[in-house]
Design a protein around this nucleic acid. Structure first.
Lengths: 209, 209
DNA sequence: TCTCCTGATGTCAGACTCTGACATCAACCA
DNA sequence: TGGTTGATGTCAGAGTCTGACATCAGGAGA
């Protein structure tokens, strides 16, 4: 056995979530998180560049999985379908964490700081997707556009999955979002379309910034 | 004459820009900015919620102008055209500040913190545009989509305007971005399309976040 | 004119975030 | 045995941001 309890990073993430839930994000200090995880504040900052990052640890893995999938999808697959396939590939990894995702979403949507971080993470993911598409010989402009569409679909699906009282799987929601997007693009969208929901979810809090 | 020099806010903004340019954003302290503007650090934080905000003072005015224009455009105007008209309405207000815009852009693109702020400001602007469109009886889903398109056009045009060695006016670039977007949508975009440029400009710095 | 009130600013103390430099010490390796 | 390594701790300090209270010129009204 090592000199210290293993998985300090994971303990920090769990401690942070627990404290953010009960006390709220900004009434929780890094010292409290660290202490609950059994390490010092200094160690927290060795694992996470800043306080916000403790909520975004999964972004790297998500990006890796998506990029790998896009690169490995059969060459004949259309670009948007490749992206959709990648989104579907990630769907199962979320399936058992709906409760967690819901709590996390609740924390993020109530703090402008965290929304900022989320936006930049998504922009970064879109960039990575676009790069992967270019490796599949997709023209740059198209790659960027499709990457953005992919993000829009993902957001939309994720949002509805988190709130789905019938607990249908994320993959179903991704498919539904794709269908709806196509419908909207074809001019048959309704005014209660999901796109609205997706947009509302990323509206910054009215904190006066 | 008042008890203090007037326009403390403006002085703070100017002082900040000057210092960010020479020392860089993170080697400039709020105390230095305030001191150069002839006030105390505490006063800085009365005008700006945080250090980043000093670079985003214009966002409120921009939003107001855009929203007002959208609301007042003839009812018969198509939604996207209303948004484009609003963008054009703002174009002239930037015209005399290309140098400033360029410096500002340079500072923002080299600091992840500032890019985050910029992203959330743009998201907020998109939201406001969508709301205005709904007031014109545009369906919610369409309003969101068109608002996002408007932001994409604006970003793209702004980016190219700032770097335009021929110093063509922003309005020209807005029109060009619109044309290009339509071309891409029609499937005739080239691989060196502007959309690529626009996307690259918002790619977060590789600071490992 | 005197007095009161208001608004912009200053002063001060302090909590919190984040960083650099250096110390510790178990485990692993030669 | 002895040296190295890697994760962590300790400490000091800079910088951001906030709350509470003080100051004081100028305007409003008596």
């Amino acid at each position: 056995m090592g000199r210290w309890e293993p998985n300090a990073r994971g303990r920090l993430e769990q401690a942070a979530m627990a404290l953010f839930e009960t006390r709220g994000y900004d009434r929780t200090t890094v010292e409290e998180i660290a202490s609950r995880a059994g390490v010092t504040e200094r160690t927290f900052f060795r694992y996470f560049a800043d306080k916000r990052e403790v909520l975004f640890g999964g972004a790297k893995d998500l990006e890796r999985l998506i990029v790998d999938t896009i690169v490995n999808v059969p060459a004949a697959t259309a670009p948007l379908d490749a992206v959709i396939a990648a989104l579907q590939a990630t769907a199962s990894t979320f399936e058992e964490r709906r409760g967690y995702a819901r709590k996390r979403r609740g924390i993020i949507t109530t703090h402008a700081d965290l929304q900022e971080r989320e936006l930049i993470k998504l922009a970064s993911l879109a960039s990575a997707i676009a790069v992967s598409l270019r490796q599949r010989a997709v023209a740059a402009a198209a790659a960027d556009l499709i990457a953005e569409l992919g993000i829009a679909i993902f957001r939309n699906a994720f949002e509805r999955w988190v709130d789905d009282k019938e607990r249908r799987p994320l993959s179903r929601h991704v498919q539904a979002a794709v269908d709806e997007l196509k419908a909207v693009a074809a001019g048959t969208g309704t005014s209660s379309s999901r796109l609205r929901t997706a947009n509302a979810s990323r509206r910054p809090s009215s904190k006066g910034r």
